[in-house]
């Protein structure tokens, strides 16, 4: 993808993000203030990119799953399982390395389970992942023993609330994961093969793509992202809450992917656009908290904003919007061509 086509792909998400930020700053004018105190950056935008970490991480894996025409409803529960595994490991005194290894392995095993159900047993993804969505919290509760498993490890909680050069660690993690997955799918042929099986599984298999293994790998990728999100959520509150960790986040992750302009019917995908989608959602969430409305309005405001965003991005509305913009562009058409030429 060249720079110009990439920009065209993510333009709706960038515009939406800008619009949401403007909207929030109307209610909370100090939105843009970022200060540097106690070796860390402090400000609402920093909160957004920190608080948005779990959904951003889930959205990375979810983007790939959705690109294969699947869906992964289990990521919230997988977060709980992985967070519980990590907390248990710390609690038992196995150290941070073992905790991270165990959490990552748990995420991969959950992904393997989902992937095998989908790819080898042919169960519809929504049903296959629903199983773990329901059972996963039970598994997490077995690990924590039904309580909030608290631990005391400054190294581990650094992952949730520490900073690197003033930037929150969760932010660093999701950005690096995003870049890592982005390079993995675009610098190799994985992205093309994933899109291919998403558009037409049968034809892709006949063209020699190992679709089953690829599907399993994609669900494992989603499980791994959920593990990272689970580790962050657990480290953040210094405890594994099997009941509430990642609760409903699978829906926010799907929403992020959709706001990112990725089709639920599979095919073309953009991880970057999904990450922007996650930031849009988090900006809305944080904005609602800042605006100081009574909490009864939270969900309604969020729903209204999401509807507006999705309607504006819908295929039937876009031509009308383009009509408006092309009129303006005609005046400066030569300039646009120059950019495209680069």
């Amino acid at each position: 993808m060249t720079g110009a086509t990439l920009l065209r792909r993510i333009a709706p998400q960038l515009l939406t993000l800008a619009a949401v930020i403007v909207l929030v700053s109307i209610y909370y004018p100090a939105f843009y203030q970022i200060v540097y105190v106690n070796d860390r950056l402090v400000g609402i935008p920093i909160d957004v990119i920190k608080r948005g970490a779990p959904v951003a991480l889930l959205a990375i894996g979810m983007t790939l799953v959705i690109a294969t025409r699947g869906i992964d409803l289990s990521v919230g529960a997988v977060m709980a399982i992985c967070g519980a595994s990590a907390a248990w490991s710390i609690d038992q005194g196995y150290g941070i390395g073992a905790a991270l290894g165990l959490a990552g392995a748990a995420g991969l095993v959950c992904g393997l389970w989902n992937g095998v159900l989908v790819a080898f047993f042919g169960i519809q993804p929504i049903v296959a992942t629903l199983i773990l969505m329901v059972a996963g919290r039970g598994i997490a509760q077995l690990i924590t023993g039904g309580t909030i498993l608290t631990f005391d490890s400054d190294t581990f909680s650094f992952l949730g609330s520490g900073t690197l050069l003033g930037v929150p660690v969760p932010t660093v993690i999701w950005i690096l994961t995003g870049i890592g997955f982005g390079l993995l799918v675009r610098r190799t042929a994985l992205g093309l093969l994933v899109e291919s099986i998403g558009v037409n599984l049968r034809a892709s298999t006949l063209a020699g793509i190992n679709s089953r293994v690829l599907l399993v790998a994609v669900y494992m990728g989603s499980g791994f992202c959920a593990a990272l999100a689970g580790v962050i959520a657990t480290a953040d509150i210094r405890g594994a809450d099997a009941n509430n960790a990642g609760l409903w986040l699978e829906l926010d992750a799907i929403l992020a992917v959709v706001i990112g302009g990725n089709s639920l019917l599979g095919g073309r995908f953009s991880i970057l656009a999904s990450l922007l989608g996650a930031m849009i959602i988090q900006t809305i969430n944080t904005g609602i908290l800042l605006a100081g409305f009574p909490s009864e309005f939270n969900l309604v405001i969020k729903a209204v904003l999401v509807i507006v965003i999705l309607v504006l991005q819908s295929p039937r509305i876009v031509p009308y919007l383009e009509l408006l913009t092309t009129r303006r562009q005609r005046v400066k058409a030569p300039a646009t061509k120059m950019e495209a030429g680069k």
Binding site: E195, V199, A203, L206, A207
Partner: peptide, 9 residues
């Protein structure tokens, strides 16, 4: 259509 092309690509 169903076994050959990957229409969107």
């Amino acid at each position: 259509k169903t076994d050959g092309i990957i229409a969107e690509l």
